[in-house]
Design a protein around this nucleic acid. Structure first.
Lengths: 235, 235
DNA sequence: CGTCTTATTGATTCAGATCAACGACGGTGG
DNA sequence: CCACCGTCGTTGATCTGAATCAATAAGACG
């Protein structure tokens, strides 16, 4: 009974498939479940934590969306990630005195919070949990490298096409509609993330629409020709 | 006696200060020391591992220099890091079936190899070691974000100036000359890393020299006006 | 219903890529 | 030891993708 209850809880917040290590035993999942906190929903624009705050927890999006960004010494903002339902973030703070990024809700958002003190204690007892966290961190590093390649080597249209297909793929993984969806971030956010001006993002959307690759109406995106978009990614 | 011997070994390869967790006890260091392999030196151009190879180990540069790079589906190469003496790399392979990056020696290079099977076993017994590895991984993520900001938001001169000061700082940390040094990578490598053409790197070097910021002769760099270079970083 | 933010579109500019040629060094073999 | 060749770096000329500047339009929200 307890087992069933736990599985339901985790299924709800998407941890079960996407976040929880398959290697964990039922008892381990139970221990993890005990430390998870589910605070009340955040509104658009709310901060989860800001640069300089003490590092306290890892987070998983249950619904909604979050962006993280850094601000360098010269005041330049760089969005480092968008997080959709089922995705884990907050790793850059791990074993550090303070956060160096800021995390902000892009829309009404529900989270799971994994307090790090508890998680760390659990890691000592359950080596496979530590292993899983390392795996997630190395995933993050690989994704950062892919993003670097995108920004450093590809043209504007390839950057945006890759971004859109990545969003679609992640929605699909979460079994959300991936053909027709609402972007939760602004053109300016997308541009910041991809190293482009917001005007350029706007122009590329217009061009993709003219080329019959997608239909766009403000934040509403309908993918029409995925193969076509995929082809644009390699230009 | 044994203790003295171990300390010497680790001091030699720079692990003691830069790589080893301060939190480790002497016995733990001893255990770690036991699993470290020091293979014969690599020549310029030698590969340590290539994309697709099984993930086997983490590496620390003892002397020389290494670059790592990814190749995406379209064949685009992206250098993801240069590693100098005392620096740890190979983390992107952790808990993955295979490497997705390639690592290549830029000059005659000596390494410490930390076989992952052994390291992982040790992590189960010594939680602070797992914690230290996570810390190094989160460092890597932060550095990747800083690089992304550099490539995505800064002009060519700021990118190169930041790169040079970063190299100098890392050499200094290792107590190597940081005012006058040899770059081990080509202009083309620097350009690839920073998202610029090699001609642009060349031109920026010439400009910096004209502006009295440094003296450059092929790979030999002499920093003259560090404050000036620092100022260029924020342009 | 008016105001404020976000998105679109057009005109112009500019940083850096690309194309092209040459020069300098370093390694190799005679 | 020197001459040759190949790679790497420099410099110049031109081109171009995307930024910037500027104006308007369309939602969103109180």
């Amino acid at each position: 009974m307890i087992k069933a209850k736990i599985e339901t809880a985790c299924t709800e917040c998407a941890l079960s498939r996407l976040c929880l290590p398959v290697a964990l035993s039922t008892e381990d999942v139970e221990s993890l479940e005990e430390i998870i906190d589910r605070p009340k929903p955040l509104s658009r624009g709310d901060y989860l934590y800001q640069a300089g705050d003490a590092f306290e927890a890892l987070y998983v999006v249950r619904s909604g969306a979050v962006k993280t960004f850094t601000v360098d010494s010269g005041g330049t903002e760089q969005i480092t990630g968008f997080y959709l339902p089922g995705e884990l973030f907050g790793l850059t703070g791990i074993n550090k005195p303070a956060q160096n990024t800021t995390a902000q809700a892009l829309e009404r958002t529900n989270l799971c919070v994994l307090p790090y003190d508890d998680l760390d204690r659990l890691c000592s007892d359950v080596p496979s949990l530590a292993r899983q966290i390392m795996k997630v961190m190395s995933d993050e590093i690989r994704e950062d490298h892919a993003l670097l390649t995108l920004v450093s080597k590809k043209r504007a249209e390839a950057r945006l096409a890759t971004f859109l297909l990545s969003i679609a793929q992640r929605l699909k993984r979460r079994q959300l509609p991936d053909e027709s969806f609402q972007l939760s971030m602004s053109r300016s956010d997308i541009g910041n993330y991809l190293g482009l001006a917001e005007e350029t993002i706007s122009r590329m959307f217009t061009r993709f629409q003219e080329d019959g690759l997608l239909a766009v109406q403000r934040k509403q995106i309908d993918l029409i020709d995925r193969d076509g978009l995929q082809a644009v990614c390699d230009s």
